[in-house]
C-alpha cells in the first residue's frame, strides 16, 4: 500500500533521507521510530505530497506521489504532529470545511460529521468552538478530519504527542478501531511501548536511513543480531560470567544475584548446546531462557542510546 524506494531528500547540507526504502502492506499499522531529525517527518511529508523527493520514488497504492499528487491526496489522511487551530470555527464546521475541500457531496456531510464525531468520542462537541477543545479532543478531532474522505491510508505524525495517559489510551483505542476498518496506518510516536502494542510492524530510522524493520517481535528479538539470554542458578556462582564469556557466541555477561544475563549470537541448536555445556560442567542451572526486550530497549541499543525519539520538531 505504501512504498518508498531509494528516497533521498536533502535540505541545504543536511541529508534528511538517504536512500530510504520502506514497504507497508495493506491493513497494517506500521510504526516509524527514530530520534529527532532521523527523517520520520520528512518521509511522512513526502508521502503526504508536501515535499518532493530529490531522488527515489514514493508510491501510495501504486500511485506516485510526484506524478499523481491529487490522486494520492484522495487516498491518504494526513495528521501532522501539531494541531493547528482555526479561530472562530465550530468542530462540526471544521469537519464540514475539510469534507468540502475533499469534494464530499454536501448531502452526505451532515451524517458523515455525526458519525465521525461519534467515532472519535466527541458526539456532543459539534457546536463547540475548536479553540475551546482540550488538546486530547483536538487530536481526536484532527483524526476525524483525516477520515472525512474515507482514505485508505492514514499518515499520523506523533498523534499521541503531548497527550495525557487517558487521552493516549483513547487515541490508541480509536486507532485500533481504524485498523479493524481496514485502514493502513503509518504512525510515528515517541511512546515506544504504546507503539509496540499498536503496531503490527515497525521500522527504525536513523540519520535518514532505515536501520531495521519488521514485526515488533522479530525486531525485539533480533536487534543487533544478538538475543539476550538469562541463566538462573540455585546458588551463588561468581565464576559463571567468566565461564560464559569464553563460550562461542556469548558476549557482555553480567551478574544480578543468582541470575547471569548475556547477549548470544547463534541459532537455537547452538543455544541448546550451550545449555548442555553449562549442565555438563556442573553449573547449578535452574532456568535458561531468552529475555524478551521491549521496543524501547531495542531502540536504545540500535541507535546507540542517543535518546528517545520524539520527532516532529
Amino acid at each position: 500500500m505504501i512504498k518508498l524506494k531509494g528516497v533521498t531528500k536533502q535540505f541545504g547540507t543536511t541529508r534528511a533521507l538517504d536512500n530510504f526504502s520502506l514497504e507497508v502492506r495493506e491493513g497494517l499499522v506500521y510504526g516509524l521510530i527514530g530520534p529527532n531529525g532521523a527523517g520520520k517527518t520528512t518521509a511522512m511529508n513526502i508521502l503526504a505530497t508536501l515535499l518532493l523527493p530529490d531522488a527515489g520514488t514514493a508510491l501510495v497504492n501504486g500511485r506516485d506521489v510526484v506524478q499523481d499528487p491529487q490522486v494520492v491526496r484522495g487516498l491518504i489522511g494526513y495528521m501532522p504532529d501539531f494541531f493547528g487551530v482555526y479561530d472562530g470555527l465550530r468542530s462540526a464546521e471544521y469537519l464540514e470545511f475539510f469534507a468540502a475541500a475533499y469534494g464530499v457531496p454536501a448531502a452526505k456531510r451532515s451524517r458523515l460529521i455525526k458519525d465521525l464525531l461519534e467515532l472519535v468520542n466527541l458526539p456532543d462537541k459539534g457546536e463547540v468552538y475548536v479553540d475551546a477543545l482540550s488538546r486530547g479532543m483536538k487530536q481526536r478531532l484532527s483524526l476525524a478530519r483525516c477520515l472525512v474522505h474515507d482514505p485508505r491510508v492514514l499518515i499520523l505524525d506523533e498523534p499521541a504527542s503531548g497527550l495525557d495517559p487517558r487521552a493516549r489510551a483513547e487515541l490508541k483505542e480509536i486507532i485500533r478501531q481504524l485498523k479493524h476498518m481496514g485502514k493502513t496506518i503509518l504512525i510515528s510516536s515517541h511512546i515506544l511501548p504504546e507503539l509496540a502494542e499498536m503496531c503490527d510492524e515497525v521500522a527504525i530510522i536513523e540519520h535518514g536511513r532505515l536501520v531495521t524493520c519488521g514485526p515488533v517481535d522479530q525486531i525485539t528479538r533480533s536487534a543487533k543480531g544478538a538475543r539476550q539470554l538469562k541463566v538462573s542458578v540455585a546458588e551463588p556462582v561468581p565464576d559463571l560470567a567468566g565461564f560464559l564469556n569464553q563460550q562461542p557466541g556469548v558476549s557482555s555477561p553480567w551478574v544480578e544475584g543468582l541470575i547471569v544475563q548475556f547477549f548470544y549470537q547463534g541459532d537455537q541448536s547452538q543455544q541448546a548446546r550451550l545449555l548442555q555445556t553449562l549442565v555438563s560442567n556442573g553449573w547449578p542451572v535452574i532456568e535458561f531462557s531468552e529475555v524478551r526486550r521491549n521496543l524501547e530497549e531495542v531502540f536504545m541499543a540500535i541507535t546507540g542510546e542517543e535518546g528517545l525519539p520524539n520527532g516532529g520538531n
Binding site: T49, R73, G74, F82, F83, V85
Partner: peptide, 16 residues
Amino acid sequence: GERERQTLNVLLTTRL
C-alpha cells in the same frame, strides 16, 4: 498566518 498556525500543510493535502 496559516503557516504560523500550522494549518497550511493540512490544507495543502486536501484536493483543493
